[in-house]
Each structure stands twice: as structure tokens, then as C-alpha cells.
Simulated scan of single mutants.
Amino acid sequence: MSRGLTPTIEAEFAKKNLVPLLFVEVQFVSGWVRLWSGIGAIVWNGQTWLGVALPNGTVLGSISQLQETTDGSAQAAALSLSGIPSTAVQQVLNECRPNNIANIFLGAADQVTGAVLADPYCAWSGYTDVPTISDSGDTCTVTISVESRLVDLQRAREWRYTNEDQQLFVPGDIGFEYVGALQSLSITWGKGAPVFPPVPPGQRVAKR
């Protein structure tokens, strides 16, 4: 088995004829939007996915080529949806936020019944960027760039060894409680303590 494919999907992909399916879910402000590459609504993974294909053969959604590299660098994918009324552009912009989650699943359908075979696998997972709008009059096309999760490796970590950050990870832990006070604490270092009993006059104390 390769890349986590189920035996059913792997066997289907090896056939000469294949009915591929794509599922896309994107997190927006008001909730998740779930779309698939077919016609009408379909239920998979306990969720309802809306089709981006029309009976006349028009396909409103598209996905750019998914690329992988051997050096582990983060690659981006582009999700596009056309046919959106121009009057809804502002609503689309209000719904989109950077760094929301987006997932792309690749699967297959049974060639006789059309049912979704178990189980589509996650071919891409990443974070959304700001959308771009292409207006063509009455309708527009919205394209959202999705950065691979590998982009996390390029981001600086902003956690600090402070009590506030520690509470986010382990609430109630007081290991960093006095870190803030140390910033203004004055400590005399290297000054020896008084010698007892007193050293007789003329006698020196050997330094350690």
C-alpha cells in the first residue's frame, strides 16, 4: 500500500478505467464550505458536499496542479470558483480569512453504482491566503491560494519563556511565575560574605 491509500482505492486506481472524484473543504468565518467535482449534492464522511459541475457540462470549480518537491519546500495550490454573482463579492471577502484550513481529498466512484469508494485520502492540506477576484460583469471568479502546511517550517516561533505563554500550554503551572520579576531584579554577584571568626591583623585569607 502506498501513501496511506486504502486497499479499495489503491485497487481502483490501478484499473484501466477510473472515475476520479475530488473533494474540497475550506474553513470560512461562518463555517465550512464543502464542494466536490460532480453534479448535485453527495454525502461522504458524514458531511454533505455540493457539486461544482452542472448538467450541461459546465464546471464552476477548478484546482491548480498539486506539486511536491524533494527538498521539503512549501508549495501552494489555487482553488477557483466561478459563477459567483458580482453582488456577492463583498460577502465573499468578509468570509475569507488568512490561515484558515483547507483540505483536498482524492477519491474514486464505483463504476456501476456511482457510490464513493472507501476512502478518499487527503492529497493536500494547508492554509488559505487572501482571495483574488476576477470580475466578468454579472458574475465573478474567486481564487484562493492555499499554502502547504510545510510553510509552518518557515515561520518564526513566537512563544516565550514567560508565565503568560506557559499558562497557554499548562494552565496552573507556576514554573515561570517569577520570570517577569527577574527583568528588574538587581543581584550583587561575586562579593564575598564576611569571614567568621574575624581574621587576626596581618593575616591574609587565601582565595579559593
Rank of each mutant, 00 (worst) to 15 (best):
S64M: 07
Q67D: 13
W32I: 09
L81D: 09
P20R: 04
S80L: 06
W49F: 04
K16D: 12
A14E: 07
W32K: 08
A76Y: 10
F13E: 12
I42L: 11
Q27H: 10
T58R: 08
Q65Y: 05
L35H: 10
S73I: 08
G72E: 10
T48H: 00
I63Y: 03
A14L: 09
T58Q: 13
A41H: 07
E12G: 00
V26H: 06
T58G: 02
L79P: 02
E25C: 04
L22P: 01
V59E: 10
L60P: 00
L60Y: 05
L79C: 05
W44T: 05
E12D: 13
Q27I: 00
E68D: 13
T70V: 14
V29M: 05
A53C: 02
G51I: 01
A74G: 14
V43L: 03
A41E: 14
K16M: 04
W32A: 09
V52L: 11
I42V: 11
L21E: 13
S62E: 14
G72P: 07
A76V: 07
S37I: 04
A14W: 02
K16E: 12
Q67F: 07
S62M: 06
Q67Y: 07
T58C: 06
W44F: 12
V59P: 00
Q67L: 13
Q65M: 10
I63T: 13
S73V: 12
G38V: 02
V24A: 13
S73D: 14
L21W: 05
F23I: 05
S30H: 03
L21F: 00
G46D: 01
L66R: 11
Q67M: 11
W36Y: 14
T70I: 15
V59M: 08
S62Y: 00
K15N: 15
I39Y: 08
G40T: 01
A74I: 09
S37T: 04
K15R: 15
S37E: 01
I42Y: 08
V26R: 09
G31I: 03
V43F: 06
D71N: 15
F13C: 14
A53R: 12
S64E: 06
L22E: 11
L21M: 14
Q75G: 07
Q47K: 13
A11G: 10
R34C: 04
V19M: 03
L79Q: 04
G38M: 04
T69R: 13
E25Y: 01
G31W: 04
V24G: 00
W32M: 10
V26E: 06
I42M: 08
G46R: 03
A77P: 02
S73C: 09
W49E: 07
S37Q: 06
N45K: 11
E12N: 11
N45F: 03
R34P: 01
V52N: 02
K15C: 04
W36K: 02
F28E: 12
A14T: 01
A78V: 15
A11R: 10
G61M: 06
F23L: 14
G31E: 04
W32D: 09
A53Y: 00
A53H: 03
T70W: 12
P55D: 05
V43Y: 01
G72H: 11
A53N: 04
V59Q: 15
G51Q: 05
A14G: 03
N17Y: 12
E12M: 06
E68A: 11
R34I: 00
I39M: 02
P55N: 10
E12K: 10
N45P: 05
A76N: 15
L66A: 12
